[in-house]
Amino acid sequence: MEQEVYDCLLCGTTLHCQISWSMLIEKFPPVICEKCEGKFEHSIRAEKGHTSLFQYNEAMKDFLHRYKFMQDVVLAKVFRMHIHQLLKNQRGIIVPIPMHPDKRIARTFAQVDELLKEAHIPFIHLLEKNTPDSQSKKNRAERISVAPLFSVKGTVEKKSYILFDDIYTTGTTIQHATNALLEAGAASVTASTLIRG
């Protein structure tokens, strides 16, 4: 039933797949056409301890709407090669930012985990979301003063950890997650996100 993709996952045009050697090695044939690919803006900034792959723009807004809101899980494949390239050689244990279980069940999938799975990046869950509330619905003061967003589950060792999230907006989420891991004994914590908001 599951078939490899023949048409662009975003616009549906037939993909004229030019197989290059690198693609054969990476095992990630393209799933979107060049035109759609060209609409995404690569992120230029890599701040201290945080890297992101893309800028938030109209195309990305549309992507997130379709992926998260319309629940088109297969779109997790769209950035698999970029995510793979970013994370495959990083030294550190990948920890995805978790969703609250209620929210995850309502959405039927964990969007951050799916991105990593499609990119063939192994990860472990060490964090638990404390409340189902979304950060984006709060104002700045509320976001900063809020009680810890995450608790640690499982064992955190004195090692390097890399947090992974879909979008970095105010940095509150990453900040809370970083603190939680450091307090639990992590040696260092950096963060990578797909999008810089």
Partner: peptide
């Protein structure tokens, strides 16, 4: 056009 996925629900 069916997509199989790991459903949390």
């Amino acid at each position: 056009h069916f997509i199989v996925f790991d459903c949390n629900k």
